[in-house]
Simulated scan of single mutants.
Amino acid sequence: MIIDDILPEFHFQETHSVSIPAPAERILAEALAYDPRQDGFIRGAITLRELPARLIGRLRGKPVAQKPFDLTHFTPLAQGPDEAVFGMVGRFWQARYGQDPLPDLAALHAYDRAGSVKLVMHFHVEGDNRPRLTTRTRIYCLDGAAKVRLTPYWYLIRPVSGLIRKRMLAAIKRSCLGT
């Protein structure tokens, strides 16, 4: 798997999968085309996550004009015939995500900002007879300070993140089956 080459070491990982009786190429294409903004629950979860930044901005008289978080915040890192990997770097526990620019895979490997993390998200279609679409999220903390800051945030958002991934996989399955 490409993800093992890109981020073989990690401190946190979340994995979800679903069987989809469709050709692997179609499954991966639907996963890459998926738009989470079409799901009201996901939009609501993102709005709730962004609420502190918006409130702080209003209190300071500087409204936040930030585009809501979605898959376009991830940088495509690598793609194979049955998998794709996306990434981002920064301090995600911050009110405005603390995301740093990430132009490409080389930048991910070179990224070394103290107190920050590397995150990769992986879509992988496995199996020919009963294909499964799996999504993995891995996070590597660059130092102890980052791990101390990320750990409570991870355990706070992990249940919602898991629900988002499950809803995303279900929507991709429906799209593949034309329902």
Rank of each mutant, 00 (worst) to 15 (best):
Glu25Ala: 14
Pro68His: 08
Ile3Thr: 14
His109Ser: 08
Arg158Gln: 14
Arg43Cys: 07
His124Gly: 06
Asp143Thr: 02
Glu83Leu: 01
Cys141Asn: 06
Gly57Leu: 10
Arg60Gly: 02
Asp104Gly: 09
Met1Val: 08
Ser116Thr: 08
His124Lys: 12
Tyr97Met: 15
Gln38Ile: 09
Pro131Ser: 04
Pro36Ser: 11
Ile20Val: 15
Gln66Asp: 09
Leu51Trp: 12
Ile6Arg: 09
Ala29Asp: 12
Ala84Thr: 06
Asp128Met: 07
Pro8Arg: 12
Ala106Gly: 10
Arg167Trp: 02
Ala29Cys: 00
Val117His: 02
Arg136Cys: 00
Arg165Pro: 02
Met88Leu: 15
Leu142Cys: 01
Ser116Pro: 05
Val64Thr: 13
Ala45Arg: 00
Asp82Trp: 06
Glu25Phe: 04
Lys67Val: 12
Ser17Ile: 05
Gly144Met: 02
Pro21Ser: 10
Ile157Glu: 05
Ala78Asp: 04
Leu142Phe: 04
Leu108Ile: 10
Glu50Arg: 02
Ile3Val: 15
Ser19Gly: 03
Ile164Gln: 07
Gly162Ile: 06
Tyr111Gly: 04
Ala107Glu: 08
Tyr97Arg: 08
Pro76Tyr: 07
Thr179Trp: 06
Ala110Pro: 03
Ala31His: 09
Val160Thr: 15
Asp35Cys: 11
Lys62Ala: 10
Thr47Gln: 03
Arg167Gln: 13
Ala31Lys: 10
Met88Gly: 12
Ala29Asn: 07
Gln99Pro: 00
Gln13Gly: 05
Met1Tyr: 02
Ser175Arg: 15
Tyr111Asn: 11
Pro36Phe: 11
Thr135Ala: 15
Arg149Glu: 05
Pro36Arg: 10
Gln13Ala: 14
Thr75Gly: 01
Glu30Met: 14
Thr72Ile: 08
Ala29Phe: 03
Gln38Glu: 13
Arg91Met: 01
Ile46Ala: 07
Gln94Val: 03
Phe74Arg: 06
Ala22Glu: 14
Leu169Ala: 03
Pro21Ala: 13
Ala78Ser: 10
Arg43Thr: 10
Glu126Trp: 04
Ser19Leu: 11
Ala107Phe: 12
Tyr97Trp: 15
Arg158Glu: 07
Lys118Leu: 00
Tyr155Ala: 10
Leu71Arg: 13
Ala146Ile: 03
Leu133Met: 09
Pro21Lys: 12
Gln13Leu: 12
Arg174Lys: 14
Glu83Arg: 08
His124Phe: 01
Ala45Leu: 09
Ile20Ser: 04
Ala53Arg: 06
Arg91Trp: 03
Pro8Trp: 10
Trp154Ile: 01
Thr15Gly: 00
Phe41Asn: 05
Leu163Asn: 03
Leu133Val: 04
Ile139Phe: 00
Arg37His: 05
Thr15Met: 12
Phe86His: 02
Gln99Lys: 15
Pro131Asp: 02
Thr134Asp: 00
Ala95Asp: 08
Arg43Met: 06
Leu119Cys: 05
Ile3Ser: 14
Asp4Gln: 14
Ile157Pro: 00
Ile172His: 02
Ala53Cys: 02
Val117Trp: 01
Tyr155Gly: 06
Ile3Met: 12
Met121Ser: 11
Leu32Trp: 10
Leu156Glu: 00
Ala29Arg: 14
Leu51Val: 07
Ser17Tyr: 11
Phe69Trp: 11
Pro23Asn: 12
Arg37Asp: 07
Thr15Asn: 12
Tyr97Gln: 09
Arg174Ile: 04
Pro159Met: 08
Ala31Phe: 11
Thr15Val: 15
Thr137Gly: 03
Leu108Ser: 11
Gln99His: 08
Phe123Cys: 04
Thr134Lys: 13
